[in-house]
Design a protein around this nucleic acid. Structure first.
Length: 337
DNA sequence: TAGGCCATCTGGTCCT
DNA sequence: AGGACCAGATGGCCTA
């Protein structure tokens, strides 16, 4: 098994390295296999890699001739069944090995594509990777939900949106989506109050700096208080807003320039977990609180969801506090069921 | 320990 | 013939 734990520090910080490592180790394995295969052939005195094509063909022809009768005619009419000579067998084996390598590469490509997809659907987390099937389901729901928004031309309420997102998803994934919403709700509030700016970088800025954060023409430097102080707490200049509302005075709608930047990534700043920094601060500040409120449950534990601290509520649609709390209750009810 | 998820191998099919 | 794609089988890892 090549799967390494996701909490490997090195792997966590660089997925490409992770993949490279996995591939290299696999290639190493494969090379060894090929080597042993070659050895085997060498011991048989028939290294097919080194034996000239004509030589092997000659050999096969000679063996084929054995199937002819004394008159030089084939014993049977119709397509002659080629005798499985050692050379042929080895050639088949080699082809199989090569095919395996290609198949492996193909699957890696598929996984890379899936990783890319994971990054553009809500709730991206390196530590808690969505499974393949859940990624596809969530992506489908996401696309559908967004297209509904476009079709209707109006923001749905949060509850509906989340319900749409979570249709057909497993409970753990539903919890993860819910957890993402909470995290961002909290971040939003902190940003609004202006007292914890370092927690409230624009998710846009962190996720797709060049594309989504007009006020951050240079990529934000992460991690230091000083550097983030210059960043506005939250950026509502989403493409979503550009469709439906006039933008806030302090920012203009971003031009959608990025090839891989879905316009609705920042659904009112909700889905900010699409980046390692968000993940980190989730881990550092909120994840435990939100996900591990119930002892003995993992991050995706079924009972751990929506246990909000009393002072957190949703930013969605700029609800008043009371409205937000009511919305929270609604969501809690939905997801607890 | 069962079940979920994953990577890999493998043989079949289709296409160039 | 060979490559791409697919689906089934298998075995390893992880978690509840």
């Amino acid at each position: 098994m090549l799967t390494l734990p996701f909490d490997e520090t090195v792997l966590m910080t660089e997925p490409a390295i992770c993949r490279k490592y996995l591939r290299e180790s696999e290639e190493l394995k494969q090379a060894k296999k090929l080597e042993s295969c070659a050895k085997l052939l060498t011991t048989q005195g028939k290294n097919i890699k080194k034996v000239p094509e004509e030589e092997t063909e000659q050999e096969e022809e000679e063996e084929d001739r054995e199937e002819e009768d004394e008159n030089g005619l084939p014993r049977r009419r119709g397509p002659r069944k080629k005798k499985m000579t050692k050379v042929r067998i080895e050639r088949i084996k080699l082809r199989r090995v090569e095919a395996n390598a290609r198949e492996r590469g193909r699957m890696h490509g598929l996984n890379d594509a899936l990783d890319s997809l994971r990054k553009v659907v809500p709730c991206y987390s390196k530590t808690q990777k969505l499974s393949k099937i859940e990624t596809l389901r969530l992506a489908k729901n996401y696309i559908w939900a967004l297209s509904e928004i476009l079709r209707i031309g109006k923001r749905p309420d949060l509850l509906t949106f989340v319900q749409n997102l979570c249709k057909g998803l497993s409970q753990p994934t539903t919890n993860l989506v819910a957890g993402c919403l909470q995290l961002n709700a909290r971040s939003f509030l902190m940003g609004q109050s202006g007292d914890t700016v370092h927690h409230t970088r624009s998710p846009y800025a962190s996720i797709y700096p060049p594309y989504h954060s007009p006020e951050l023409s240079t990529p934000p430097s992460h991690g230091t208080l000083e550097s983030t102080k210059t960043v506005k707490p939250y950026n509502y200049c989403s493409a979503y807003e550009s469709f439906y509302e006039s933008t806030s005075p302090e920012c203009s709608s971003p031009q959608f320039e990025g090839p891989l930047s879905p316009p609705s990534m920042n659904y009112n700043g909700i889905f900010s977990l699409k980046q390692e920094e968000a993940l980190d601060y989730g881990k550092n500040y909120n994840y435990g609180m939100h996900y591990c409120a119930m002892p003995g449950r993992g991050p995706l534990g079924q009972s751990s969801m929506f246990r909000l601290p009393t002072d957190s509520h949703f930013p969605y649609d700029f609800h008043l506090r009371s409205q937000s709390l009511a919305m929270q209750d609604e969501l809690n009810a939905v997801f607890h069921n």
